[in-house]
Each structure stands twice: as C-alpha cells, then as structure tokens.
Design a protein around this nucleic acid. Structure first.
Lengths: 237, 237
DNA sequence: GTTAAACCTTGATTTCGATCAAGGCGGCCC
DNA sequence: GGGCCGCCTTGATCGAAATCAAGGTTTAAC
C-alpha cells in the first residue's frame, strides 16, 4: 500500500510485486503493458476455509492455500477430482461438459481477474496460449495418474500415493531421501472421497503405515515421512 | 491421386480434400498457405489393429478407427486411460509426466505431421493454440468423468456408463430416445481394464443388462441399445 | 467444568467384486 | 474333419473393503 504512488511508473504493477516469486505459471508470459492492464482488472481476495468458489468466468492465481475440485453423483456419492496447491492457477476457458465444484480446503488467497481479459490476450500473446495449454495438459496428466490409481491400486497403495502427492505439492523442492513433514489440509472424509474409499479404510491404512514405520502421525493431521523414497516403494507404480 | 496435378493451384491441398468433412477439430484453424505447408509435411498411414503407435513427436488426425491409451503399474496391472474415436486428434506438445502407451484397437487411418510444424504455427495462429487448448480441456473433462466412475460407481453403473460413452462416440448425432446399435471395438479384457474390473465381472454385467432388456447382444461384440435414455438411468450420474 | 459437535479410530460383520474353475463358441491351421 | 487357440460365459468360493457399531479425542461454546 505504501508503494502505491509509484505504481504507474514501475515496470511491474505494485499489486504484482509481492507476487513475483509465484508467477512462473502464468503472469510471466505477459509484458509490462499487459501486466499493468491485468493489474487494473485484478483484485486480491482472502477466502475462508470451506467457502465454495463460484464458477463465474474468473481466472485466479492461487497465492496461498489449497482448493479441492469435486463432482457428485445423483445420490450424493462424491468424488474429488483434484487439488490446487499454491502456487497454481485456477480457471479455464470453454465450459466444462459437466459441472465441477471448487471449494477452499484451507484459508486461501487469490489474485483474480475476469476471463474476458485473458481470452483477448491469447490473441496477442501466443506464449499465453502455450502456458494455458501446458497447464491443462499437466492437469490431464494428473487426472490420468489418478485414474490408474482409482482403477487398479489397492487401498494401501492409494493412501501411499496420496501422501506422496501431498508431500510433493507442499514442498516441491523435496529431496527424495530426506525426511519431510507437513499438515494435511484434508479431513479423512476428503481423503476417502479422493481415493474412492471410505473413511474407515483410510483410517486403517494410516494406522498400518504408522505401525510399519513408513509415517508418523501427530494430532491426526500432522504427517512425517521417513523419506519420499520409502513411500514410493509402497505406491505400486 | 488423379487430381494430383492441380494440387499447387487449389486452395486446399489435394491430400486434404477427401478429409474436409472431418477437419472441424484442428485443420480448419489453418489458412490455405498453412494447409499447403502442412500437407507437404504430412502423410497418410494405415495401421493394423493391435499396432502400438510410437510416441515420437508426431501429431495425427485420426481419420478412421479407434485408439486406446494405457498405463501399466509395475506388476503388470493395466489401466486404460481413454480412447480416441475418429474423427479425433492425437498428439501433444510437452512431455507427459509418466509414459502412456497408445495402441490401435481397430485398423486405423492417420494423417500425421511432425510436431515441430505445429509448434511453430502456434506462434502465428492464436486460433490454433485455442483449438489445442480446447481439445486438451475436453480430454481433461473426460478423464475426470472416469475418475468419478472409477472411484464411486458400482460395476453395473460403470458398464452402463461405458456403453453410453461408446454409443455417443460411434454415432455423435445420436437421438437420445431412438435405438442404436454398433460393434464394440474392444475385448472384454479391454473393457475391464478401462473400468477397473475383471473380465468376469464385465461379462456378468453384460448378461445382466441383456436380461434386463436394456441391451441386446449378437456375436459377443454387436450391441443394440433400446435407447440412450434407458442406459442413462443406469449410470448413476 | 460440562456439553456438544466434528472428526477419527478400532472391532465385528457383511457384501460386492475378485479369484478359481470349468466349459462353450468361433475362427484358423493343418 | 479335427485340434488348437483366443475369447467369452457361468458357477463356486474367497477376500478386500464396505458397512455397522461403539467409543475416543479435540475443539469450541456456554
């Protein structure tokens, strides 16, 4: 806020400055003029855990927190389709074939701007289209990974794969051999809905991994892994 | 072949002419000059059923036939990640995170061209990037549909959903109320690997749908549906 | 401090789909 | 024709995960 008066002169808009470390995904595709235009149309929000993100045509950089994507069958059965961990990018052009709900799992910080701006900028900046394509393909790869897990892995392989996925997203600079610990941003029910299991089965598999020595659990949600590599052996692929 | 001598003059390259009906997906994004350039670098292939499609950087229009995408776990368990039904488009920029195998389920006709040409054309034609993005997002929607099915549907809902998906792809101009019939391009083993089931369970569910009157089966592979709508009731979502 | 609600764990039992097993059908080769 | 092989179906049994049930822990509210 203090630096506001310099915003017009600077190459990078003030609102973007504290973000720079996180802008690999999308915003680094823009030149200074575009960034300024985008910054004018953008706004920062804090969203409380549990809030559902409305599906207007908005695009957002996820600056902090975790978001889940879910789909429900007609009788209420639920499947979690994926997660977005900060820093990531939310929003897509073209309507999805079926509806998907997005909900904040933790408190979340977003930097949002209207889709129309992005849609227009695609025409003048091929690199932007390329980034969006790369991002979509990365999500496709993830979805297919979980298809293989949901279709063919055992309960214990699913849980190990899940912990690995969370660990990698919470600390992308992981060293495979060293230990790592983190707080799960999900309840057992969320984990079950992601892995196609019940909460009881998830709970039992957690207990089993703990008695195996593969993980340690404090306060239900705080997980410590002996190493990434130890879990990789248990995830089947 | 007879029209070859006029190729250079025509707006549309000779090789592309018989294809035009199928070019909604990709090639209609190109202007005549680009089409000509692409046509020079492209070639048509016939691929026999069962052949594995090599994962060089080529892109292909799938003119006829059906292709499956598969992933294997380390001990040989297999999951089919998706299908491509003609007319569709195969190939992607950026490496996938994990390897995916593509294999022809039926005899297949491809029109292929090197990825480098496409990668370059993205820069001069934003519309191309948009098409590729739309295509990737459509595949993402499909993958997520099947995540929900694999994670939360019963065996019988999975089989109903599968038949519906095939029916819609074999005859995209389906009328939901009218009957439809088609030959399955897959063995029971393929269906099982797609739905996360065993061949025995798939076979039993086929028998059950038949005795329910929801489908008719001739020669194992030829399926007749009373109507799309009848199956929709059975697929859970 | 007591109560309540949400979340989690563990045990007992059941069930859906897997596995094991046998046989049928159709195509192909000799 | 006969035999073989790949594919499919059906039946019997088994087992992994679901369901049913009970109680524990944590947090927050009053």
């Amino acid at each position: 806020m203090a630096a506001r008066q310099d915003a017009q002169e600077a190459d990078v808009p003030a609102i973007c400055k504290p973000c720079e470390a996180r802008q690999g995904e999308l915003c680094s595709a823009f030149n200074a003029r575009q960034l300024a235009e985008l910054a004018k149309a953008s706004s920062r929000h804090e969203i409380l855990a549990g809030t559902e993100l409305s599906d207007d045509g908005t695009y957002s950089n996820l600056l902090s927190g975790v978001v889940k994507l879910t789909r429900n069958l007609s009788d209420g059965r639920q499947q979690i389709l994926g997660f977005h961990f900060a820093p990531d990018f939310l929003g897509r052009p073209f309507k999805a074939k079926k509806s998907i709900k997005a909900q904040a799992l933790t408190n979340v910080t977003l930097c949002s701007f209207p889709g129309t701006v992005i849609d227009r900028m695609i025409n003048e900046t091929p690199e932007l289209g390329r980034r969006l394509l790369k991002h979509a393909l990365s999500e496709l790869d993830d979805a297919r990974d979980w298809m293989a897990a949901l279709g063919r892995k055992t309960a214990s392989e699913k849980v190990a794969s899940f912990l690995l996925m969370v660990a990698r997203n919470m600390d992308p600079a992981h060293h495979p051999q060293s230990s790592i610990s983190f707080d799960l941003p999900l309840t057992r029910a969320d984990i079950a809905d992601f892995l196609g299991l019940t909460i009881e089965t998830v709970s039992r598999e957690f207990s089993r991994l703990r008695s195996n020595g593969a993980i340690r659990i404090a306060n239900k949600r705080h997980i410590s892994l002996a190493s990434i590599a130890r879990l990789e052996e248990r995830c089947g692929d």
